[in-house]
Design a binder for these strands. Structure first.
Length: 572
DNA sequence: GCCGTTTTCGGCCCGACTGTTTTCAGTCG
C-alpha cells in the first residue's frame, strides 16, 4: 500500500518541529509546515501522483526541494534528513512542545542544558527546581510547567464533536445571559462541524469587552484560567476542554468571526491574497493603509475580497476559494432534504427497540421511509439473525406496513462481508429485500490489496446495495482499515452501488476528505444513522455535517429521494 | 524553502498575553 498523504504530512511536520528546536531559519520551517498542511488537505494521493510521474512541484507550497523529498519518501517510506535528526533528538522531545508555555526555544534550552527529552524528565527536573535558574525561565515559569505537564500528558487527544457539543451549548447559553454582550457565537472547528474538536473558540461583541471577559472567567464549570486579558481569555473546563474567548467591537464582528472560525489554512490563503492587493486583513477588519474598508459581517469580508459567501464547513482551503470566485460552490445538503434513514437496528439483532417503535420514532422526523437493517448471524456479531429469524422479521414488516400508513418500512439487512468476499446470508433471501447494506466487521488487518479485493468481490453479488461504514474507523479508538480508496470509489460507481456516510458520532465514515474525492468520482451516498435505539435517530445531523464538509449536495444522496424514485435507484 | 499582475531576490499573516520586560522575547492561536 502506498504511503498516505497524512503520513507524508506527518513527516514534514516532525521535520519542521525538529528544525525549529534547532533554531533553523523560521521561514524554511514555515515552508515545511505549509507543505505538510497542503499535502494533508490534498484530494488525491500524492504517492499515486509520484508513481504516475505527475509533476508534484506544481502543487501549492511544494517546490523542487520538497518535491524531491516527497519522491524519496514515496520510494523508500522514509526521509533520510528526518532520520538523521531523530538520531540527534529522541522522538519524545516533540512532546515537550505539547506543554503550554514551552515552544521551540525553551525546548532547545531544556535539551541542551539539562538533557531533557521527555515529559517524565521534564516533570522530574521541575520538581527538583532545576529549571527556574535557566536562561529564559523563572520560578513562576517552572511552577507553570509543573502544572501544565500533568495536563499535557492527560490530553493530546481531540474531542469528538458530539462530546464537545453539550459543553459548547452550555457555555454559549451562559454567555448569552451577560447583559454586556451584543452577539456571541462558538467559532473554530466546532462551527466548521469538524468530526473532532481540539478546543472551543468563542467570539463576542461588546462595548465593554473587559466586563465580558471578567464574566467569562467566572463560568461555573471552569477548572483553570490559563489567560485573562482585556479582550481575550483562555480557560479549561472541568471536562478538560479548553475554551478560547475573544471579544471585539461590533464593527469587527465579521472579521473576528471569520478569523476565529478558520481554518487556519483558509484564513491564511485569503490573507495572502489581500497582501497581493495591498490590503491587510486582521481580526478587526480589512484595511487599506489605516482605513478600514470592511469587517462588520463575514459576507462583507468575502465580498470585499471578491468571493461569494463560503459556508464554514467548506473553509479548509480545499478548493473553496477558487470555486467561490468562479461561482461553482456546491449547494450543501441540509437536514430538511432527508426523506429517510437506511440503516438501523431493532431487537431482532442488537437494537433496543421494536420495529414499530423505530418506525414511529422515525415518523417524528418526518421521514417517508426507513430501512430495517438487523445484523446477519456471524461469529463477530452478537445476536445476529439466521435465515429463519430474518423470515420472521420480514413477515412482521409486512404487517406493520399494512398498519402504519404514514411511513414505509423497507426490508433490509446489515449483512457481513466475509473474508472471502461472500455475504453471510443466502441470495435466495437477499433477493426478497428492498436493499442490502453490507459491511466489514472482522479481519481489519488484511493488507490493502486483500481488503479491497474482499469488498469488491462482495459488490459482485447482484443484491449488494450499500457499503456500510466503508473504512471501519472509530474516532480515537481504531484506525481505518487499509483500502485502495480510489479503486473502491470507481468500482462503486461502475457497479451501481452506493457508499454510506455513517452518522454515528464515533464513526462519521466516510470522512469529509474521502467523501469529496468519492463525490468527484461520481459516487452516490446514503447518509444514515446506524441507530440501535429510537433515541439516536437524531444522529442524522452528524452525518449531514460530515457530508457538508465533503461538499456533498442533495443530488448526491439517495435517501433524499421520494420513495418511488429511491426504489428505481435501488434496482441494479 | 516557496513564490511572483512592478520582483528570479527579498519578501514571507497578524496580533494578544505573559513575564519582570523599562522596550521586548517567547508563545499561542
Amino acid at each position: 500500500m502506498a504511503i498516505s498523504n497524512v503520513e507524508i504530512a506527518d513527516i514534514f511536520t516532525h521535520l519542521a518541529e525538529l528544525l525549529e528546536i534547532q533554531g533553523y531559519n523560521a521561514f524554511k520551517i514555515i515552508a515545511y509546515k505549509n507543505a505538510a498542511r497542503e499535502i494533508a488537505n490534498l484530494g488525491s494521493s500524492v504517492a499515486r501522483m509520484v508513481e504516475e510521474g505527475d509533476d508534484i512541484s506544481k502543487l501549492p507550497s511544494i517546490g523542487n526541494h520538497i518535491a524531491e523529498k516527497i519522491r524519496e519518501i514515496v520510494k523508500t517510506g522514509k526521509l533520510t534528513q528526518l532520520e538523521t535528526l531523530q538520531k540527534k533528538f529522541p522522538s519524545h522531545i516533540l512532546d515537550l512542545l505539547k506543554v503550554e508555555g514551552i515552544g521551540p526555544k525553551r525546548a532547545k534550552i531544556l535539551h541542551d542544558t539539562l538533557h531533557i527529552n521527555s515529559l517524565e524528565e521534564l516533570m522530574r527536573a521541575a520538581k527538583e527546581h532545576k529549571i527556574r535558574d535557566l536562561d529564559g525561565f523563572s520560578d513562576k515559569i517552572e511552577q507553570k510547567i509543573l502544572d501544565k505537564t500533568m495536563f499535557a500528558k492527560k490530553i493530546g487527544k481531540r474531542f469528538m464533536y458530539s462530546v464537545a457539543e453539550p459543553h459548547a451549548n452550555a457555555i454559549l447559553d451562559y454567555m448569552q445571559k451577560s447583559k454586556d454582550i451584543l452577539k456571541v457565537l462558538v467559532a473554530g472547528s466546532f462551527r466548521r462541524r469538524k468530526d473532532t474538536v481540539g478546543d472551543l473558540d468563542m467570539v463576542a461583541t461588546s462595548k465593554n469587552p473587559k466586563k465580558v471577559i471578567d464574566y467569562f472567567v467566572q463560568y461555573p464549570d471552569v477548572k483553570d484560567i490559563i489567560l485573562h486579558g482585556d479582550t481575550r481569555s483562555t480557560i479549561i473546563l472541568k471536562s478538560n476542554i479548553q475554551v478560547d474567548f475573544r471579544c471585539v467591537q461590533e464593527d469587527s464582528y465579521g472579521s473576528a468571526l471569520h478569523y476565529f472560525t478558520g481554518s487556519r489554512a483558509h484564513v491564511l490563503a485569503i490573507r495572502k491574497l489581500a497582501v497581493q492587493r495591498d490590503l491587510k486583513i486582521n481580526e478587526y477588519g480589512i484595511f487599506r493603509g489605516k482605513q478600514s474598508i470592511s469587517g462588520s459581517s463575514e459576507e462583507d469580508i468575502y465580498k470585499t475580497m471578491g468571493f461569494s459567501y463560503i459556508e464554514p464547513e467548506l473553509r479548509e482551503n480545499r478548493g473553496e476559494l477558487e470555486a467561490s470566485r468562479k461561482g461553482e460552490l456546491p449547494h450543501l445538503i441540509n437536514q430538511e432534504d432527508m426523506r429517510g434513514d437506511l440503516h438501523m437496528h431493532t431487537t431482532y439483532s442488537d437494537g433496543q427497540n421494536s420495529i414499530e417503535e423505530m418506525a414511529r420514532a422515525a415518523m417524528g422526523f418526518g421521514y417517508e421511509y426507513i430501512a430495517i437493517t438487523d445484523h446477519s448471524k456471524h461469529l463477530s456479531i452478537v445476536h445476529g439473525m439466521d435465515e429463519k429469524k430474518l423470515r420472521t422479521e420480514l413477515d412482521e414488516i409486512d404487517r406493520l406496513n399494512e398498519k402504519l400508513k404514514d411511513i414505509t418500512i423497507l426490508k433490509s439487512i446489515e449483512v457481513d462481508i466475509l473474508e472471502d468476499g461472500s455475504l453471510a446470508m443466502s441470495n435466495s433471501l437477499l433477493k426478497e429485500l428492498d436493499l442490502v447494506v453490507a459491511g466489514v466487521h472482522d479481519k481489519f488487518n488484511l493488507s490493502a490489496k486483500q481488503q479491497t479485493k474482499r469488498i469488491l468481490k462482495a459488490m459482485e453479488n447482484p443484491y449488494f446495495t450499500i457499503l456500510a461504514h466503508p473504512t471501519g474507523r472509530l474516532i480515537n479508538q481504531r484506525e481505518a482499515y487499509s483500502l485502495d480508496m480510489e479503486l473502491l470509489f470507481k468500482e462503486t460507481v461502475q457497479r451501481g452501488c452506493f457508499l454510506e456516510i455513517n452518522s454515528q458520532p464515533k464513526r462519521l465514515d466516510l470522512n469529509d476528505i474521502y467523501a469529496k474525492i468519492a463525490k468527484d468520482l461520481g459516487v452516490r451516498f446514503s447518509i444514515s444513522t446506524d441507530s440501535h435505539n429510537e433515541r439516536s435517530l437524531y444522529y442524522m445531523k452528524y452525518g449531514i455535517y460530515q457530508a457538508r464538509r465533503g461538499w456533498i449536495e442533495k443530488k448526491n444522496v439517495i435517501n433524499t429521494l421520494p420513495l418511488s424514485e429511491l426504489k428505481e435507484m435501488l434496482k441494479r
